[in-house]
């Protein structure tokens, strides 16, 4: 009982610490200017208003940047999950020449910090004239070594006989991949997709460098430049932050339900 109390107590404190800034920012987004600029803003708006939200969407074209971010994040997620699924499966279960070497190279790539890649990536994309294109943000993220390594490890745990059975059943490579392999690694793919989406959505450094035209900027980068122009309008900034974190919230709520269901399904089976 004491353990339970301690557990729930500490989890509650953690939840409050995490949620408080988020809720405060959201609350500030609905405040009028005098309230916000009076030193420390209050916790709750006395006269709620949509003024800031409307302002940031209309005046600062936030919807445009939102769309940029959405295109990049969705494309990155789809492409990277697909590539990681194929590569992880092949490296774990398909026998081919050079498999070990490639596995090692991928594993080594995990160790390279993304900051170290900025300069060579920039040179490469300038060479092929893809700076200021969506491709500049999507292509480098398409082959994510962390995702590949995780899928590879997960696929090793799946008995090879199931894949042999699919071959005996006359399924081709793609049929085996889509109808047998993908469903078996679905939980892992879903988790990776959520993770990839969040990382892509929040990415700042590379998008700032690769997207030099203002109209191509993603939400975090655009938000940062709005911040520099209107550093006194806290309400405007809060509105921008609220709009930025909204999709994250939606995705987490949606995927959490998915995780919960898979956990329950597992326990019911036994």
């Amino acid at each position: 009982m004491a353990v339970r109390t301690f557990l729930y107590g500490s989890l509650s404190i953690l939840a409050i610490l995490t949620l408080f800034p988020l809720l405060w920012v959201t609350s500030i987004a609905f405040m009028r200017s005098p309230e916000q600029s009076a030193g420390t803003p209050p916790l709750w708006p006395r006269h709620p208003t949509l003024h800031n939200i409307v302002n940031i969407i209309q005046r600062e074209m936030l919807g445009h940047y939102f769309l940029n971010s959405l295109i990049v994040a969705v494309a990155t997620t789809v492409l990277s999950t697909f590539v990681a699924g194929l590569a992880g499966y092949a490296l774990a279960q398909v026998r081919f020449r050079g498999r070990r070497i490639i596995s090692w190279i991928v594993l080594f790539a995990v160790l390279i910090p993304s900051q170290a890649l900025v300069l060579p990536l920039f040179e490469m994309f300038r060479e092929v004239h893809l700076i200021n294109h969506y491709a500049a943000l999507i292509l480098p993220a398409a082959a994510n070594p962390v995702s590949i390594v995780l899928i590879q490890a997960y696929m090793r745990g799946i008995p090879a006989e199931i894949l042999d059975a699919a071959r005996m059943d006359g399924a081709g490579e793609w049929q085996t991949f889509f109808y047998v392999v993908v469903p078996m690694m679905a939980p892992m793919l879903a988790a990776l997709a959520v993770l990839t989406f969040v990382v892509s959505w929040n990415d700042f450094m590379w998008p700032m460098i690769a997207m030099q035209k203002a109209s191509m900027q993603t939400l975090p980068v655009a938000l940062a430049s709005i911040d520099r122009e209107h550093y006194q309008e806290i309400g405007l900034m809060a509105a921008g932050a609220t709009v930025t974190i909204l999709p994250m919230m939606a995705i987490f709520v949606a995927s959490q339900r998915y995780y919960l269901r898979s956990v329950v399904a597992g326990s019911l089976a036994d």
């Binding site: 006989e161 199931i162 042999d164 059975a165 047998v180 469903p183 078996m184 679905a186």
Partner: peptide, 12 residues
């Protein structure tokens, strides 16, 4: 046709 030691049924 082959029957495998661990049955190798498709779990999903």
């Amino acid at each position: 046709a082959m029957v495998f030691q661990n049955h190798a049924l498709y779990p999903h």
